[in-house]
Design a protein around this nucleic acid. Structure first.
Lengths: 133, 133
DNA sequence: CCTTCATGTTTACAAACGTAATCGATCCGC
DNA sequence: GCGGATCGATTACGTTTGTAAACATGAAGG
């Protein structure tokens, strides 16, 4: 039977903006994090209540984006999708949606709209050199 | 007083995915388009009814993303935001959200995840050369 | 033991979204 | 002039999202 391409866990459900902030906290965190841990990181900056963080964690669990491991009477949460995979997916979505899938168009656009600093250009150049050889 | 940066019309309201499909149809269209025109282009491919297209057009008008010009008893619609501006905005959002705003990181990621073909690389290289000189 | 605190679960609720049907006015063909 | 086609406007309705309060339960401290 055909095997799906992604490198990790059953995906498919879109992660929203608010949920994404939680994911970043988890990706950032060294090892599994409790709801409180997540709250400590994102709560303040986004002005969320602990309750909100809990809701978002639940939804992410439903979406299979994170996994839980019981720790006493509470849960510890870990991302079950790789950040790189996620980032790649989102990038591709944008590429497909706005640039007909052509990465060069995206870069061209960034360049033209001056979203690229001199430093960016140098960095990309170096990157290319490395990739080309 | 500080003047906003964008080149065109009051923006601010997010354009959704469905709405974006309509925008593309309008950007594509030579000159103002009627609801029917839009429907003819996107209706089939997205499986939308004419009613749906009309709703989306209305919402885009509310969001000031498109403008209307009466033509007899109907309206002709034209984008009031430039595609390039929109694309730039969305690109920047992604960049900020996922790459800390560093374009080079995005390019690096695309490269590593093999989203860049040989052709892409060559194109980007050429682009850089042009920008550098 | 009983109170309090911490935790996940359930419920809430308004706004946004996707998708559309219905309504009221108008125009076109007969 | 009358009936159907056409158009924008209004209304609809289930789902998702953002944000959170209420609730149940178990742990911990006195």
């Amino acid at each position: 039977m055909p095997r799906k391409s992604g490198s990790q866990g059953e995906n498919s459900d879109r992660i929203t903006d608010a949920e994404h902030a939680v994911m970043e906290a988890l990706w950032d965190h060294a090892g599994p994090a409790s709801a409180q841990d997540v709250f400590d990181v994102v709560g303040a900056s986004r002005g969320w209540s602990l309750a909100t963080v809990k809701t978002l964690l639940s939804r992410l669990v439903q979406k299979h984006a994170i996994a839980t491991r019981p720790d006493g009477r509470r849960f510890l949460y870990t991302p079950s999708i790789d950040r790189d995979d996620y980032v790649g997916g989102e990038s591709r979505r944008l590429l497909d949606k706005l640039f007909g899938g052509r990465a060069a168009s995206l870069v061209a656009h960034l360049a033209e709209s001056e979203a690229l600093t001199e430093k960016d250009l140098t960095e990309i150049e170096a990157l290319l050199k490395e990739l080309k050889q």
